[in-house]
Design a protein around this nucleic acid. Structure first.
Length: 277
DNA sequence: AGTATCTCCTGCGTGC
DNA sequence: TGCACGCAGGAGATAC
């Protein structure tokens, strides 16, 4: 479910509520078969009684740093990571799809719920940026590494539609199906326009709008369509500002046109064929 | 190599 | 009310 703004919102909630020297007391894995098996023994060995030294994000991966390595959590399409309070020192009754609890020594615990189980919980002892899931990721869109020169160079000779291109995390992380559509609408670029055919003006607009849309969405606490909640169990509000996503057959906000809907690689894609060329 | 398609899963809304 | 079907915030794996 979550795209970058949702993961960022979860991250901020965790950082604000987990103090620097919180230790893990216990990890409970009720259902280890997520996208990959959760490495229970390795986690038990490496995080129990260990401090969470830092929590960061790379793309849509949440990274929990410990002394001997890093725990990676990805929420997939339907994952929710909540920070809950123990009641009388005990965890609350788990609900369906509450696959993992990580109990801290400060009276709180993390609970991962993921109905579709496309998410993952992994462990690595190596430098996490060398991990195979992270080492070929493109730049973070909200940093200066993602800029006109980078994108122009990367788009060269690419014979794929621009929407597919920006949704590929090897090119830039964080632009999922919602925000890819929104940023293309703002940039007036047709989602199927070949990446190599974008003009300099379009490339500049796209860089600017990807940043803008993600920043706005983070400020709004992410987008809640169905079931997304942040770490405090609260929804986001960016869905109120969506311009094309989910608006097929409705009026374009920018012209007299009607929003069209197509499939791109199996993903529903909305755009205005008058505004977006 | 670059590009396209397949795949993992459950839950929900729709239409018959 | 029941059931089949399609679709859903991802992205690695596999196949051309």
């Amino acid at each position: 479910m979550p795209e970058l703004p949702e993961v960022e919102t979860v991250l901020n909630g965790l950082k604000n509520n987990i103090s620097n020297n919180s230790k893990v007391k216990e990890i409970i894995i009720r259902f280890p078969k997520l996208r990959w098996d959760i490495p229970e023994k390795e986690l038990q060995r490496n995080i129990i009684n260990q401090e969470i030294l830092d929590i960061t994000r790379r793309g849509k991966y949440l990274l929990f740093k410990f002394k001997t390595g890093t725990m990676l959590i990805h929420l997939g399409m339907s994952g929710v990571l909540k920070l809950l309070q123990l009641e009388n020192g005990k965890i609350t009754e788990p609900a369906k799809h509450d696959h993992v609890d990580i109990i801290l020594d400060n009276g709180a615990f993390l609970r991962l719920n993921d109905p579709r189980r496309f998410g993952c919980v992994l462990w690595t002892s190596e430098n996490v940026s060398n991990h195979k899931l992270l080492n070929s990721l493109g730049p973070e869109p909200l940093t200066s590494d993602f800029n006109f020169e980078y994108l122009k160079n990367k788009l060269k000779h690419k014979n794929i539609g621009i929407k597919k291109f920006i949704m590929d995390s090897k090119n830039v992380v964080g632009a999922g199906n919602i925000y890819a559509q929104e940023s293309l609408f703002l940039s007036k670029i047709h989602p199927e326009k070949l990446a190599k055919d974008l003009t300099d003006i379009e490339i500049k607009a796209l860089v600017k709008n990807i940043k803008r849309i993600l920043e706005k969405a983070i400020k709004a606490g992410g987008t809640t369509l169905k079931d997304y909640k942040n770490s405090e169990g609260k929804p986001g509000y960016f869905q109120q500002e969506l311009l094309v996503y989910g608006r097929a057959n409705q009026n374009c906000y920018n012209c007299e046109g009607i929003i069209k809907e197509i499939k791109i690689s199996g993903r529903t894609t909305s755009y205005c064929d008058i505004c977006q060329k």
